[in-house]
């Protein structure tokens, strides 16, 4: 039980780190939209992969779950990207 909890905690820590690094690099590349676009897309891909791996480790993997992560990532990336390209 405690091993499973540790596993989950490490998953969330990894997600926080990944999103934090993506956001940090995005801010560091301020006023360089062409480079920021790459960071946004990579962060979106990271999120989808994290969702797939996390739910597989929790034995909750399902195609609907994967699709949900893909669509949430697509929505977030579209909003983020369209804003960045207007700067």
């Amino acid at each position: 039980m405690s091993k499973k909890l540790d596993l989950l905690h490490s998953d969330y820590l990894f997600l926080s780190l990944g999103l934090g690094i993506g956001g940090g690099i995005y801010l560091l590349l301020a006023h360089q939209p062409s480079l920021q676009v790459g960071v946004i897309i990579l962060t979106g891909i990271f999120y989808i992969l994290w969702g797939a791996i996390h739910h597989a480790r929790e034995d909750e993997w399902h195609i609907k779950v994967l699709l949900e992560y893909i669509l949430i990532a697509a929505l977030a990336v579209t909003l983020w990207l369209s804003f960045t390209l207007r700067t």
């Binding site: 999103l19 995005y26 801010l27 301020a30 949430i72």
Partner: peptide, 14 residues
């Protein structure tokens, strides 16, 4: 949390 990050970055970015 992912959407919150995007909102935060949009607010912080000029």
């Amino acid at each position: 949390s992912f959407l919150a990050l995007v909102v935060l970055l949009i607010i912080l970015s000029g």
